[in-house]
Design a protein around this nucleic acid. Structure first.
Lengths: 250, 250
DNA sequence: GTTCGCGCTTGATCTGGGTCAAGGATACCC
DNA sequence: GGGTATCCTTGACCCAGATCAAGCGCGAAC
């Protein structure tokens, strides 16, 4: 558990250039509002495996994922852990109006975050309806995603759980790349088998077995342990048990 | 599935008198803002078992639970169902900016709701930061509760799940009654064994068995099937696997 | 009263996924 | 090259909770 590499970025890039600008909290902001945000903004980078904050710790910023993936995790005293959110680029981290983090936030891959100092951000939220409104919208989306995931955790079989996770990653990945929706989807799994298990309420052995089974049945192709090809997204969605939409994202 | 008894209430009571006024969406509203809400407000009552809206149906209002309990439920094509939220008095129903309901909303007990016509409510939200801010706060609370529940669904044993549910109901019930925190908690379960199972990702048989086990072990007392006494909340929380806080509410 | 129906309990048995344990495949470092 | 650490796979066995099935308790309708 090393903690270097977490210094403020020097080349304070401007919001306008930000790749996730139009999907993040500031999506609706006017030029002058962006300018104000600029004042309290800074970038931080984390390497894979680094912890951004521990549950219960003071958190003096909020922010958005710019690139990479972070996960929110809850742990019981006896060590059982459950991932409760997967934060992809443009997702928001932190809760205005609360000082302590409610979950462990961990960089699952190399991670770049755009942070805002919490106090001034909270003040801005009261004065800038655009921010509060956008944040409400994003929070409602996350709530839907969390509820979708409750169905996965409560009622789906191991195979369906894996298929659900793969389809979420595949789809989010596809929209990020703005790739044409046609043709096989290809991506690298950003999660270890253990992280997948933590997200799905399974053990890593079961994840491994079901991945092998989906591969054997031709639902996915695997090259190495992480490189995945989905020849037929419809088939995968069927396996996930929700023929239609495949779910939102946390 | 009968649908009567769902007419607009005649005695349009004023918000000031509303028992949940200070905890609901309008908690922060000034007198003039309340007055404006008054214009688009109406009450609806539902009897136990009635469906408020079906998933996918048009929903032309948003609102708050005034009394009784409603549940949000998701169903898979093959009939597996998962309750994804339990709405208690003051909780908000509906999503501004979306027309179709995302879940089945069902009155679990007799239910009174304070509804606002959606279109004007959405307009007010843009003009009245107090409403958007309060709604954001409530949505963040619900998101926390949903994530808390993901841990329950993903990692807890049947016994822990039951204990978790009972402690949530007990605590929410206690705060509603403003009862002193000391002494045994007493309440009537507002859910059938089947509804409990749907919330916990279990079968009703398992729920029944674990209720019997908790009774046998003196963690709870049962009088009839629904009347519950918690002699020692600390003990119950221990059984739930979270010694400290027992969780938030959806 | 009797009968019906619904919500619940309890027992017997089955099974999906957990647990324990033994390797295999890469990648990195010396 | 060999050593070793990390991540993953696969097998053998077990158990918590699902499934199948029978019956109880109690209120409502007659």
């Amino acid at each position: 558990m090393k903690m270097p590499n977490d210094q403020l970025s020097q080349h304070t890039q401007h919001c306008d250039d930000c790749p996730i600008r139009h999907r993040a909290v500031c999506a609706r902001c006017e030029a002058d509002e962006l300018e104000a945000l600029e004042e309290v903004k800074y970038y931080r980078t984390f390497e894979a495996g680094q912890t951004v904050v521990w549950s219960g710790d003071q958190m003096d910023f909020v922010g958005s994922v710019v690139s990479g993936i972070a996960s929110l995790t809850q742990t019981m005293e006896d060590g059982r852990t459950q991932m409760v959110g997967l934060l992809l680029p443009s997702d928001f981290v932190g809760r205005p109006g609360r000082d302590a983090a409610a979950y462990d936030v961990v960089a699952t891959t190399e991670l770049v975050m755009c942070c805002f100092r919490k106090k001034p951000f909270e003040r801005m939220m009261l004065e800038t309806p655009h921010i509060a409104q956008r944040l409400l919208e994003m929070t409602l989306d996350e709530l839907d995603a969390a509820r979708e995931w409750m169905l996965v955790l409560g009622r789906k079989t191991a195979r369906e759980k894996i298929a659900s996770l793969l389809s979420i990653i595949a789809r989010r990945d596809a929209t990020l790349k703005l790739a044409g929706t046609k043709g096989p989807l290809v991506f690298d799994l950003p999660l270890t088998r253990e992280a997948m298990a933590d997200y799905l309420g399974l053990t890593l052995e079961t994840v491994s077995r079901q991945m092998s089974a989906l591969k054997r049945d031709g639902v996915i192709h695997l090259e190495g342990k992480r490189h995945v090809t989905i020849p037929d997204l419809g088939r995968l969605l069927e396996e996930a048990g929700d023929d239609n939409d495949g779910g939102l994202m946390a």
